[in-house]
Design a protein around this nucleic acid. Structure first.
Length: 333
DNA sequence: AAGGCGGGGGA
DNA sequence: TCCCCAGCCTT
C-alpha cells in the first residue's frame, strides 16, 4: 500500500513535540535508570512481550537481583527459572531467555551484542526485540516497531486507525524515515522510546486521549475525524478463556510449580477421569499435590478433560516446560 | 499468512 | 464478556 510522507517541517515539529512530551511524561520504569546493563534491558524486553509493563516491574526486579548476568541465568535450574517467571504468561519465553543467556555467555563473552542481526539470531529475539535492545541498550540508530509505535505512526502520518496486519518490510522502510537522522544518540533513542510511550499512555488502541496528545495538531487521523477503519487483525471469533486448552495448560503448570515433589502423572488423569463421570465422584489420590491438582481440575473441569490433560502434558513435555521421570511429572531441571 | 501460546486488569 | 498488552515461532 502507499504511505504518506510528511513535509520536513512537520516531521521536525513532530520530533520536538514527542521529545518534549516524553521528557515530561515518561514513566519511571526501573530499566530506564542510568547504569542499567544491556542484559537487564534485554530481560525487560522479553518480559514485556505481550505483557503489560506494570506487571513486569516487580518480576524484573527480583529476576535481576537473582541473576544479574547472562551466565548467572544460564547456570540456573530451569525449574527455578520457571518459578521466578511466576505468572507473567507465555512461560516458553522464560525457556528462550535462559537459552539466550547461555548463547551470550558462551559465544559473546557474557556481553549482550549490539549488532541487530546478531541479536535477531538469539533465541526468543525477533525483529522488535532486536531493534529495541540495539536502540535502548546500545544507542544504535534503528527503527523500533512494536504495536504502539506502529499505531501512532499509522494514525499521525497515514490517517489510519490501526496498522495493517503483520509488519512488512515496506512498512519498516516507511517508518524509518521518521526516526531522527541527526543529533546525538539520545535523540533517536528518545524518539523510539517516546513514540512507544505515547502509544501506551495516550494514543491507545481503543480510547485515545487526543485532547492531550502532543501530536494532535499534525495527526491525519484526528483531522479526518478519527474514522474507525478496519479492525487491527482481530480474530473473527474471540475464543473464550474458560475451558480452553490454554487455561488447562496454565493450571497444570501451576500445579507443577507449586509442588515440592514430582507429581504422579496418573494423578492428573485419574482426577480428571473422576470428574468426567467416574463411579462415585471421588478419588483417593495421595500426596502433597492432591489439593493443588483438585483445585486445578475443578477450575477447568469439562467433559473430556481426562484425555485433554494427557495430551496437554505430552505437549508440555515436548515444549520443554515439563519433565517426566520414574518419580512422576515435574518441572525440568 | 495463519495459528498457538498465559494471564491479568480494565472497559 | 470482550479487548488489550514493549511478540515470537512454527506450519
Amino acid at each position: 500500500m502507499t504511505h504518506r510522507t510528511p513535509a520536513e517541517t512537520d516531521l521536525a515539529a513532530a520530533h520536538e513535540a514527542v521529545l518534549t512530551w516524553f521528557d515530561a511524561h515518561a514513566r519511571g520504569l526501573p530499566w530506564r535508570a542510568q547504569g542499567t546493563s544491556a542484559w537487564a534491558v534485554l530481560v525487560s524486553e522479553i518480559m514485556s512481550q505481550q505483557t503489560p509493563v506494570a506487571r513486569v516491574v516487580p518480576r524484573w526486579r527480583d529476576w535481576m537481583a537473582r541473576w544479574p548476568a547472562p551466565s548467572d541465568l544460564a547456570a540456573a535450574p530451569t525449574a527455578e527459572v520457571l518459578r521466578a517467571w511466576d505468572s507473567l504468561g507465555y512461560p516458553r519465553r522464560a525457556l528462550r531467555l535462559k537459552e539466550c543467556a547461555a548463547v551470550i555467555a558462551a559465544e559473546h563473552g557474557d556481553r549482550v551484542p549490539c549488532d541487530e542481526e546478531t541479536l535477531r539470531a538469539l533465541p526468543g529475539i525477533g525483529a522488535y526485540t532486536a531493534a529495541a535492545v540495539a536502540s535502548f541498550a546500545c544507542g544504535r540508530r534503528t527503527t523500533v516497531l512494536d504495536v504502539n509505535i506502529r499505531r501512532v505512526l499509522a494514525r499521525v502520518f497515514d490517517g489510519h486507525a490501526h496498522p495493517k496486519g503483520a509488519l512488512t518490510k515496506s512498512e519498516t522502510a516507511w517508518a524509518a524515515q521518521f526516526v531522527p537522522a541527526d543529533g546525538p544518540d539520545a535523540r533517536h533513542v528518545a524518539w523510539n522510546a517516546g513514540v512507544m510511550e505515547l502509544g501506551a499512555l495516550v494514543c491507545t488502541s481503543r480510547n485515545p486521549a487526543c485532547e492531550v496528545c502532543p501530536l494532535a495538531e499534525q495527526c491525519r487521523w484526528l483531522a479526518a475525524g478519527r474514522p474507525a477503519g478496519d479492525d487491527p487483525a482481530r480474530k473473527p471469533k474471540t475464543q473464550a478463556w474458560h475451558g480452553t486448552d490454554r487455561q488447562l495448560r496454565g493450571a497444570i503448570m501451576a500445579v507443577l510449580k507449586a509442588a515440592e515433589a514430582p507429581v504422579a502423572r496418573d494423578l492428573f488423569t485419574a482426577s480428571a477421569t473422576e470428574f468426567d463421570g467416574g463411579p462415585d465422584g471421588t478419588f483417593d489420590a495421595q500426596g502433597a499435590a492432591h489439593e493443588a491438582v483438585e483445585t486445578a481440575i475443578l477450575r477447568v473441569r469439562e467433559p473430556g478433560d481426562g484425555q485433554r490433560i494427557g495430551r496437554l502434558i505430552d505437549a508440555l513435555i515436548a515444549d520443554g516446560l515439563a519433565a517426566e521421570s520414574r518419580a512422576g511429572l515435574h518441572l525440568p531441571h
